[in-house]
Deep mutational scan, measured.
Amino acid sequence: MTEYKLVVVGAGGVGKSALTIQLIQNHFVDEYDPTIEDSYRKQVVIDGETCLLDILDTAGQEEYSAMRDQYMRTGEGFLCVFAINNTKSFEDIHHYREQIKRVKDSEDVPMVLVGNKCDLPSRTVDTKQAQDLARSYGIPFIETSAKTRQGVDDAFYTLVREIRKHKEKMSKDGKKKKKKSKTKCVIM
């Protein structure tokens, strides 16, 4: 069974824990209790493949930012979460993405942009803004509501699919490099 290491990042209060708990335990946590770091595991079937999701729910508070490099190193894919009623959390996505790329030393890291709290009427981040940002990053965008469960499975499952595509691409690139290195030079 394939294991996928997913990391949920975003500013404090955007609903990272609520999304994760909704996926794992099928219930909505409405009281806000700032996370330092929590880890969850769940076995699911995605596109006919049974897999184990190892999900790291991270601290959004700035005082825990020193811990970010460590979990970013171990993560295979990242859910970059903002709240649709919090423009600052949307603007912060850029910083999370840049930090992930720096730590992973790669421009090509599996990510999904997630606009959470889409059940709320007080939207300050337009869907088109988020779609445009995701398009500019070359990553999928999904709106979710941890409260109603809308888009929750889709967000995590899409990230797994992005990781699969990335692994497939990397193995193809690896095979191309191996083929090239088999060419021999004969000096007579």
Rank of each mutant, 00 (worst) to 15 (best):
H94M: 15
K175H: 06
S89D: 03
N86E: 09
T158R: 07
E49K: 06
E3T: 11
I93L: 12
K104R: 13
E37T: 05
N26T: 06
L19A: 11
A130R: 01
F156D: 00
P121A: 12
S145Y: 05
K5Y: 00
V14A: 08
L79A: 02
I36Y: 05
K117F: 15
D69H: 03
P140L: 06
T58A: 09
I21R: 15
T2H: 10
G77I: 10
V112G: 00
S17H: 00
K42L: 08
I100V: 03
G138F: 01
T2V: 07
D57S: 10
S122M: 06
K104A: 06
Y71N: 13
G75E: 04
K182Y: 03
L79Q: 00
T144Y: 02
Y32R: 10
V152E: 03
E168S: 09
E62M: 08
D54T: 13
G10I: 00
F78I: 10
P110N: 01
C51H: 06
R123Q: 12
K101W: 03
T20N: 12
I93F: 09
K16C: 05
E162I: 03
G60F: 02
A11I: 13
K167F: 03
G48R: 06
Q61R: 07
K182R: 12
H94W: 12
K179N: 15
L6E: 00
Q99Y: 08
K179L: 14
E107A: 12
T124I: 09
Y64P: 14
Q129Y: 05
V14D: 04
M72S: 06
G138Y: 01
C185S: 15
A134K: 04
V103P: 01
K169W: 13
Q131P: 02
H94D: 14
F90I: 14
M67I: 11
I36R: 07
D92F: 06
D30Y: 06
C118P: 02
S65A: 08
D54G: 05
G77Q: 00
D126S: 11
V29F: 09
V160R: 01
L120M: 11
F28M: 11
N86R: 02
V81F: 10
L56M: 10
D54I: 04
P121F: 09
M111S: 00
R97C: 15
L6W: 01
K178S: 14
A146S: 09
G151D: 13
Y4L: 07
E37A: 09
P140R: 05
A59T: 13
K178H: 09
E62D: 12
K172E: 15
L53T: 10
A18W: 05
H27T: 08
Q99M: 09
D173G: 05
S145A: 02
M170I: 13
G12H: 02
A83G: 15
I139K: 06
G174T: 15
L113F: 12
D126F: 09
E107N: 07
Q25V: 01
E37L: 03
